[in-house]
């Protein structure tokens, strides 16, 4: 554990808190992509299968929180707040993301075991799971401030893992190329969003695309 990883995980927790807080206080999930949320649940379930055979207090607790909160968000979106979700603006074709992640996972896992292939699938899928959400923001041309805070916190989480990987490589020669490549791609996908977030939202203006 190092400060970058801890900060990254805290940003991940904060992003989930912001999302659930936004939905429960406004009693609405407008502006949130159901497809991205469904992909995240798929990411957590396929990556954290090792809950069944590995226990570490910090990691296991976080894994349960991520799976549980993700399932809760999907419950809110399909149950109580379903009328506020507009599928007509949530139209990204996720089959290509799932298919691409599945192909990469089958071709280049660390080991050809079901758990390793699913872990690799989850790493690639996470790197692109935000795309339906970003696509939705782009289609509507604007986003609520709270939604932009959510996307920022979620992006900051994986961005902070990058200095964590550098630190771990330098201090213990830890080297996880799949996580690192996918994590860099994930951060790059957020970079346009980060730029607009910094230049607009943090200066008190509305998030609107130029």
């Amino acid at each position: 554990m190092n400060i970058f990883r801890l900060a990254g995980d805290l940003f991940h927790l904060i992003s989930i808190f912001i999302l659930i807080h936004k939905m429960t206080t406004s009693k609405s999930c407008s502006g949130i992509s159901f497809k991205s949320q469904a992909l995240y649940l798929l990411v957590y379930v396929t990556r954290y299968l090792d809950l069944f055979w590995t226990f570490a207090l910090y990691n296991s607790t976080m894994k349960i929180i991520f799976i549980g909160s993700s399932a809760y968000v999907l419950h809110l979106m399909t149950g109580p707040f379903k009328p506020t979700h507009d599928p007509n603006i949530d139209t990204f074709k996720v089959r290509y993301l799932i298919g691409g992640a599945a192909i990469l996972a089958l071709l280049f896992p660390y080991k050809w075991t079901p758990a390793e292939v699913l872990w690799t699938f989850s790493i690639w899928l996470e790197s692109v799971a935000i795309l339906p959400q970003l696509f939705m923001v782009q289609r509507t041309g604007a986003a609520e401030t709270i939604t932009t805070h959510y996307i920022f916190a979620l992006g900051a989480y994986r961005a902070l893992y990058i200095p964590n990987w550098i630190y771990r490589y330098l201090t213990s020669t830890f080297w996880d190329p799949l996580s690192i490549i996918a994590g860099v791609i994930q951060t790059v996908l957020y970079s346009d969003f980060f730029y607009i977030y910094y230049t607009k939202v943090l200066q008190g203006r509305k998030f609107e695309l130029p």
Binding site: R5, D9, H12, D50, A56, N59, M62, K63, F66, Y110, K111, E116, W119, Y161, N164, S172, T173, F174, W175, D176, P177, L178, S179
Partner: peptide, 10 residues
């Protein structure tokens, strides 16, 4: 040593 399949991150 490579620890690439330890998966000790989230």
């Amino acid at each position: 040593a490579a620890e690439s399949t330890k998966h000790d991150e989230l």
